[in-house]
């Protein structure tokens, strides 16, 4: 059976304020999904809720990985189950070197049953893989010795997130605006890398990928099988690659007009957000 991540009627509130109002989305391994939508429509909220951020309260609905109830797992268990997100704004962890951070992370994710204190993956094997992946992403070796996201430029952070995806080899990867902060060449490289990493999550299996973006470049090499549009905390329309093309050229006016109720919800969300 193909691994499946299934989100049903998901409601999420932040600080008591409802943000997601019934999201339905099913991703199978091997599929690429694009998630688009205006700023503030709830795309990152969906990602954070899938990852188990404690500040995002699930007030209704379910998230299932095959027959596992994802909502019962903490963020660590979700990561070990093979769910990954490249964050829009990754956190800095001063004093912790990228390489050390990733060695421990890689060990835990690849051996989900590892007990605390058990051996990490062998240094040589890890080094080799890390170096290969960094070369692929055209990252300087020095990078591994820098502290996690500490003082990284926007572009460096995004590249570091892709590097983590490459090392952790998740079953499902959410990429939240991984193209923002990158110049044209860097987006091209990111697009290629994501396609390559996504095509092999170990053992020849592909990943299921959810790409949150406003642009077309990241989708160049990652043609979406499905494109979803989020508005006012709901996925209001789903189509193929042609829908993505329409949105990044024409914007969301047609969508807002077609879904007045979601557009009204969007308006009320942004109002409260700016208060």
């Amino acid at each position: 059976m193909t691994d499946t991540l299934k989100i049903s009627d998901l409601h999420v509130a932040v600080e008591g304020k409802p943000i997601l109002r019934g999201v339905n989305l099913t991703i199978r391994r091997g599929e690429t999904h694009a998630l688009m939508g205006p700023n503030g429509s709830g795309k990152s909220t969906l990602g954070n809720a899938i990852m188990g951020h404690p500040g995002y309260e699930v007030t209704g609905g379910t998230i299932a990985l095959n027959d596992g109830n994802v909502l019962e797992w903490d963020a660590s268990e979700r990561a070990r189950a093979g769910i990954f997100m490249a964050f829009q704004r990754p956190m800095a962890i001063p004093g912790v070197k990228m390489a050390d951070f990733l060695r421990h992370a890689t060990t835990n994710v690849r051996n989900p049953d590892r007990k605390e204190g058990e051996e990490l993956i062998p240094m040589r094997q890890f080094r080799k893989e890390l170096t290969e992946n960094m070369e692929q992403l055209r990252m300087d070796v020095e990078f591994a010795r820098r502290y996690v996201n500490d003082g990284f430029s926007g572009g460096e952070m995004k590249r570091a997130e892709i590097l983590q995806m490459a090392m952790l080899r998740p079953k499902f990867a959410i990429l939240d605006e991984t193209d923002s902060g990158l110049d044209v060449d860097a987006v091209k490289l990111a697009s290629e890398s994501i396609a390559q990493i996504g095509s092999d999550a170990g053992g020849g299996e592909k990943m299921g990928i959810l790409i949150i973006t406003h642009h077309d470049k990241l989708l160049d090499r990652n043609a979406p099988d499905f494109t979803h549009v989020m508005l006012g905390g709901r996925i209001v329309e789903t189509g193929g690659i042609e829908l993505a093309r329409e949105l990044y050229t024409d914007g969301y006016d047609r969508i807002r007009a077609a879904y007045p109720e979601a557009a009204a919800a969007e308006e009320s969300m942004t109002e409260t957000a700016t208060v």
């Binding site: 990561a79 951070f101 421990h104 992370a105």
Partner: peptide, 21 residues
Amino acid sequence: FYAMTRGYTRKEAVRMIVTGF
């Protein structure tokens, strides 16, 4: 949270952040 999404248990994450400090 960030460290946990990379597979760290909460306790491992705390320990790592303290070491970083």
